[in-house]
Design a binder for these strands. Structure first.
Length: 623
RNA sequence: GCCCGGGUAGCUCAGUGGAUAGAGCAGAAGUUUCCUAAACUUUUGGUCGGAGGUUCAAUUCCUCUCCCGGGUACCA
């Protein structure tokens, strides 16, 4: 359906809301808001949209100026030619107290601000940026976010690490902007795949335990999962050799034909029947896995308000389906299966003809359970993009069942992680193990730290290496837009240069070092700062970059995309490193300048720290 | 077949209806008597998959088309 355009609007400029909050958008400079007021006074006949404001952008590097006003954006509103609009804007700004020069170039006005005005409107008041309200009270929500959702048959790998990182950082981000966030996990602790490790352990385990073997619990169980698959392969090969007519049938098709497969199936039935031996083994092995996961989570900093177990929720949903059937939401097919006819999304079986659940049955039940437990305004699932269709159907079904909250369900779909060698495949052993990866990152960070610290080995070496290694890993995973199918190159990822977490951490560490040196020299830090002194282009650029922080948080939260924040922190760190290079702080020419630069540094450090913490990344005291 | 992503520098990825499309890595050349060189500076490198259309302006929006990935289960 074609959108109707407002008549005065004609062509498409100006259809974008003028108040839109975007990264690299400045709205808090006095001269810009004065410009807005001025224009409204000059053109009383114009009907302005609510909360209309001129927005400034950062001036591109190839132009001279601090800020730029793009007059294409609003020239139409005033029925003016863009260039003429620019000249009018430039004339006003040129006469403004805060402005050194304002130059109209085509439809743009490039503004060079007085240094004092730049800093006054940005970093001078420490609360102005960090304390900015991101989401107004009226729009704050109670948000339930489910992520991680591991299976208890094997240890976590890089794919889980991406999920965990995305989930915990999104939770932290949403909380940072003012929402109430409840992070939860739903562990898949039952089912045929769990029985696979159990069967293999029963047959080949010989009583091995994490304690006796020294193997972390989840890895130990994973070892038997692998063992199961090799054993199954052996049986499948034997089967097709003995009965060549089966050769063209798939492995899954032949699963129950094998002795091992049949035994696994039997074990699942025994589990459901509550056979004590099976339940005990299940309890035991799951307890090993949970202990292992707890370590992995602790190392990443993952925390949940609650962990749901599928063994406790897998029977949910059936009653809801039957209820929906009675109310005409679903229908019964000739073969007895209960289906939902979802139109464009297709037909979906929601209860099998034998009355048992399918995946979506459980999800319906669990979603309702989660709603009843927490009454959130919004539920978010961090789940891979191969389940996009599943979630669309789930949401549509809940909508049809009449749940008013079903419009506020959101699937954060993220792409797979590939390796240079191709896809990660558990069966082919090409997965990158989470714990190994953490250890490797920390070891590299440790080596790099040792290399640069000389003879003085820091007392907190291991802790520092952990913060840097984990920071590098998380940052790398968050740098990509969640939906991109990303490539993880182990070699390249283990570097700490360029667009990396350590680059940002390093900027913070440099400021820490300045603070430490200042204390050593007994310098008094004064709050009484003459910001006019910070007139270097690097100083102005740094403050202007700092001012984007609230808008960046807003955009990241709105899009539920931490990569927006990652990109910003890289820009901010880069602006700081340029400043650091050009503007000596402790050895500044005089005390007034030194004080001003120190204060600027501390404001930037606060932002870097807050930003990294919002990504669940720490900042080491020194690097 | 149908549905959903994606195709931008050698590689990995940003980005946008507006000024000369960016970053990191890789390649080339520099910077340390001075607060940390995990840094900084300069430089090489692009028909933004292809073709039409809308627009004053398209890499960005629309249509068609070609390639890649995923989905399309009484699997999870």
């Amino acid at each position: 359906m074609p959108k109707k355009k407002p008549r005065w609007c004609g062509p498409r400029y100006n259809q974008r809301p003028l108040t839109e909050v975007k990264k690299n958008t400045i709205m808090n400079f006095k001269c810009v808001s004065d410009l807005s007021s001025f224009l409204q006074q000059q053109y009383p006949a114009v009907s302005f949209p609510a909360a209309w404001q001129v927005v400034g952008d950062k001036c591109p590097g190839n132009m001279s100026g601090d800020l730029t006003i793009n007059c294409f954006r609003f020239a139409r509103l005033f029925r003016q030619a863009p260039d003429a609009m620019a000249r009018e804007v430039a004339a006003f700004l040129a006469g403004h107290d805060d402005v050194e020069t304002a130059e109209a170039v085509k439809a743009f006005v490039n503004i060079t601000l007085r240094p004092g005005a730049v800093h006054r409107d940005t970093v001078a008041d420490p609360n102005r940026i960090l304390g900015a309200t991101i989401v107004p009270a009226a729009r704050r929500r109670r948000i339930l976010i489910e992520y991680s959702a591991p299976n208890t048959n094997k240890p976590q790998h890089l794919g889980h690490v991406r999920n965990n990182t995305l989930g915990m950082s999104l939770a932290a981000l949403l909380q940072r902007v003012g929402h109430e966030v409840i992070p939860i996990n739903l562990v898949n602790d039952r089912g045929i795949h769990i029985c696979k490790s159990m069967i293999a352990y029963q047959r080949f385990g010989e009583g091995e335990t994490p304690a006796s073997s020294g193997i972390k619990g989840d890895h130990l169980v994973g070892k038997y999962y692998v063992r199961f698959n090799t054993e199954l392969k052996r049986q499948l090969d034997a089967l097709t050799q003995a009965r060549p007519e089966l050769a063209d049938r798939s492995d899954e098709d032949l699963f129950l034909e094998t002795e091992l497969g049949a035994a696994t199936q039997k074990m699942l039935q025994d589990w459901e029947a509550g056979v004590p031996v099976v339940r005990e083994l299940w309890q035991l092995m799951n307890s090993w896995v949970f202990a292992g996961f707890a370590q992995t989570y602790a190392r990443m900093g993952v925390k949940f308000a609650h962990t749901y177990l599928e063994s406790e929720t897998y029977l949910l949903g059936k009653d809801n389906i039957l209820d929906g059937l009675a109310r005409g939401v679903f229908s019964r097919r000739d073969d007895g299966a209960i289906i939902a006819d979802l139109g464009k999304l297709g037909q979906k079986v929601v209860l099998r003809s034998d009355g048992t659940s399918v995946y979506i049955t459980q999800d319906i039940g669990t979603t309702i359970r989660k709603y009843n437990d927490y009454h959130p305004d919004t539920q978010i699932w961090v789940v891979g993009d191969e389940q996009i269709h599943h979630f669309k159907m789930l949401f549509e079904i809940l909508r049809r069942m009449g749940f008013s909250w079903a419009d506020n369900l959101y699937h954060l779909a993220y792409g797979m992680v590939n390796l240079p060698s191709g896809k990660m495949k558990s069966r082919e052993g090409t997965v990158v193990d989470a714990d190994d990866l953490f250890a490797e990152m920390a070891a590299l960070a440790r080596a790099a730290t040792l290399e640069r610290c000389g003879d003085e080995i820091p007392a907190d070496l291991d802790e520092r290496a952990e913060i840097i290694g984990m920071g590098a890993l998380k940052f790398m995973l968050l740098k990509f837009n969640p939906k991109t199918t990303m490539m993880f190159d182990p070699q390249a990822s283990l570097k700490f240069e360029g667009d990396t977490g350590p680059y940002v951490q390093y900027a913070g560490a440099r400021i820490n070092s300045i603070a430490a040196k200042a204390a050593e020299k007994g310098l008094v830090i004064s709050d009484d700062v003459n910001w006019e002194l910070l007139a270097a282009p690097e100083e102005k650029a740094l403050s202007i970059m700092a001012s984007f922080y609230p808008a960046t948080l807003a955009e990241a939260a709105e899009k539920m995309d931490c990569s927006v924040l990652v990109g910003y922190l890289l820009d901010l760190a880069k602006a700081f490193n340029r400043f650091y290079r050009e503007c000596p702080v402790l050895s500044a020419e005089d005390d007034a300048l030194r004080q001003a630069r120190m204060q600027l540094c501390f404001r930037i450090r606060d932002l870097l720290t807050d930003g990294l913490n919002t990504l669940t990344i720490g900042v080491p005291a020194a690097m």
